[in-house]
Simulated assay, not measured.
Amino acid sequence: MASSKRWASIISSIASFLLFFIIILQVPVFRVPCRTGTCTSPVEVMSSHLIATELYPALGPKALLYPGAIARSYIKNRTFPSYSKLSKLYNLTNLRKTSASTDLQHLEILAGSYLAVAGAVLGLIRLGRTSLFGTLLILWGFVREVILKNSANMNSARSIHIYPVTMCIALLCAFLAIRKDVRKLIRCCRTRRGAKSLRFRAKIM
Rank of each mutant, 00 (worst) to 15 (best):
L18W: 05
Y90C: 04
S82P: 01
A195Y: 13
A2F: 14
K184T: 12
G134T: 09
L19I: 03
L176R: 01
R72S: 06
S12E: 05
H106W: 01
G37S: 01
S41Q: 04
T79N: 04
I70S: 01
R31H: 13
L124G: 02
A69G: 06
T93N: 15
L198F: 09
L89S: 09
V27N: 04
A177T: 00
L92A: 10
I186H: 01
V121G: 03
H161L: 14
T93L: 12
L89C: 05
N155G: 13
L95A: 12
Y163A: 05
L136H: 02
K184P: 04
Y74P: 00
S41M: 00
L137H: 05
Y90P: 05
L115Q: 07
T79Y: 10
I22F: 02
V182T: 12
I14W: 09
R187C: 15
L18E: 06
A120R: 04
D103K: 08
A100K: 14
S48H: 01
V27M: 06
K203Q: 09
H161Q: 13
K180S: 14
D181G: 05
S156D: 09
R144C: 05
R144Q: 15
K85G: 03
A118E: 00
A52W: 00
L19D: 01
A52R: 02
P28V: 11
F20D: 09
A8K: 08
L137R: 04
T135Q: 01
T130N: 09
I125L: 12
E108W: 11
S12R: 08
L86W: 02
E108D: 14
S113C: 10
K149F: 11
A170D: 12
I24E: 01
I24G: 03
Q105R: 07
I169P: 06
V165G: 03
S113V: 02
T98V: 03
V43P: 08
T79A: 12
E54H: 09
A152Q: 13
L171N: 10
R72V: 05
Y74A: 13
L18F: 11
N91R: 12
L127E: 02
T102D: 04
Y114N: 10
A118R: 03
V143R: 15
C188K: 15
L115R: 10
